[in-house]
Write a protein that binds this DNA or RNA. Structure first.
Lengths: 209, 209
DNA sequence: TTGCGCGGAGAACGTTCGTTCTCTATGGTA
DNA sequence: TACCATAGAGAACGAACGTTCTCCGCGCAA
C-alpha cells in the first residue's frame, strides 16, 4: 500500500484482529441467547461452540473461561439496556412522560417472543452464591438504573424518595411478568407510577393524611 | 400392647414411618439451607448427605430424585410464606394496616442474616429453562400471593386495580433488597403502598388529573 | 516445490455430577 | 443361637462438565 510503514506482518495482524472481533461477537451473540433462554449452567461449552460456529480452541483464545464469557454477556446486556432506556426516554419531552416512558419500554420488552425476565435478576439467582464477579456486575447494573430514575425524578422536580419507589415498581414488573408469563405487569406498574408521580408533584396539602 | 389388632409387624412399620419422617425432615432442612444459600445446581448430593447426616441410600429411598427434593423444599417454603404473611396480617386490625403489614413482614425478612432474596424468584432464574415442574410451583406461589393481596384490597374496599400494583411493589422490593444487599427497599415499597392505598380509598375528585 | 506456522475439528483429560450397588455390621425374631 | 432383613459407608457407574491437546491440512514466504 501507499504507506511505507505498513509491513506485511502488520497487515496480517490487522486482519487477525478483525477476524477475532467478529468471532468474539458471534460467540457472545450465541452465548447471550443460550444463557438467557436456558440458564448459564444448563449450557455446555460444546453447545456454545456448535451454536456460534467457533471452535473451542478459538473460543478459549478469545476468552479466559466460561465465566469470562458470562461477564461479557452481562456487560453487553447492560449497554443494550442503557441504550434502550435512553432512547425510550428521549422520545418524550415532558418530564412526567419521560418517567413513564420507562414502563412503556418494559411493556414492549415483555411482549417480545422469548422474554424470560431480566437476565441480571436470573443470573443473580443462579450464580450469586458462587460467582462474586457476577454479583458485582448485577449490583452495578441495578445501581445504574436507580441512578437513571433518580435523575429523571430530579428533572421532573420530584422529591428524592420518589425515585426508589418508581425503580421498585420497574423491578417488580419484570419478575412478575417473567413468572406469570404475561405482559400486563408493565401497564399495572405504569398506572401505579402515574399515581405516585402525580401525588409527589402536587402541592403538599393533598399529600397529607 | 393392649390393642389385640396391633401386630409386631405393625409396630415395626409405625416405627419406620416416624424414622422416615424425621429423616425426610432433616434432608429437607439441610436442602433448604444449602439450595437457598448457594443455588440448587451448586450443591451436590454428597454435600446434602454430609449436611443432613442421612446416607445417600436412604435419601434416594425417601425421594425419587434431586429435583423431587427441590420441589418439596419449594412446597415447604410456600407454606412458611403463607403462614408468615397470614400471621403478620392478622396482627393488624384496620384494613389499611393489614395491607401495610405485608411490607413490615418483608422488612423483618430482609434484615435476616443470610437473606438472599426470594427462593422462588431465584429458582425461577436458575431452573425455569430446564425444569417445568419448578416453573409451575413458582408460578403457583406467586399467583397465590396475588390472590392474598387481592383479598386484602377487597376487604379494605379498594378497587381491583390496586391489588396487582401492591403485589408488584412487594416483588420489586424483594429483588431490590436481595441485589443491593440492604433492607431499605421494604420501607420504600411500604411508603409507595401507603400513597397508592390512600389515593385509591379517597373520593374520586382527588384522583383525577 | 519445500518448509513452516497457524487454523479448525474434535478426541482426550481430569473432575464432578446424580444415581446405584456392594459389602459389612447389627438388631430384632423364632 | 441362628437367621434374616435392613442399615450405613462409600465405592462405582456412566454421563457431562470445563478445559487442553493432538493431529492434520491449508496458505504464505522463499
Amino acid at each position: 500500500m501507499g504507506d511505507p510503514g505498513v509491513t506485511s506482518t502488520d497487515r496480517q495482524a490487522t486482519a487477525r484482529r478483525t477476524d477475532d472481533d467478529s468471532a468474539r461477537e458471534r460467540v457472545l451473540r450465541a452465548a447471550d441467547r443460550l444463557f438467557y433462554d436456558r440458564g448459564v449452567q444448563a449450557v455446555g461449552m460444546d453447545e456454545l461452540r456448535a451454536a456460534s460456529g467457533i471452535s473451542l480452541k478459538r473460543i478459549y483464545r478469545l476468552f479466559a473461561s466460561k465465566e469470562a464469557i458470562v461477564e461479557e454477556v452481562l456487560r453487553h446486556r447492560h449497554e443494550l439496556w442503557e441504550a434502550g432506556i435512553s432512547a425510550a426516554v428521549s422520545a418524550a419531552a415532558e418530564p412526567r412522560e419521560r418517567l413513564l416512558a420507562v414502563y412503556d419500554f418494559l411493556a414492549r420488552w415483555f411482549d417480545d417472543d422469548g422474554f424470560r425476565g431480566c437476565f441480571f435478576i436470573n443470573s443473580f439467582g443462579e450464580l450469586s452464591g458462587t460467582a462474586p464477579r457476577v454479583t458485582e456486575l448485577v449490583r452495578a447494573h441495578k445501581a445504574g438504573f436507580q441512578e437513571t430514575v433518580a435523575r429523571l425524578v430530579a428533572e421532573a422536580g420530584g422529591p428524592p424518595e420518589l425515585a426508589p419507589q418508581l425503580a421498585i415498581l420497574a423491578e417488580g414488573a419484570q419478575t412478575t411478568a417473567a413468572i406469570a408469563g404475561t405482559s400486563e405487569a408493565a401497564g399495572q406498574a405504569r398506572a401505579a407510577a402515574e399515581t405516585l408521580i402525580d401525588v409527589a408533584l402536587r402541592p403538599a396539602r393533598n399529600r397529607a393524611a
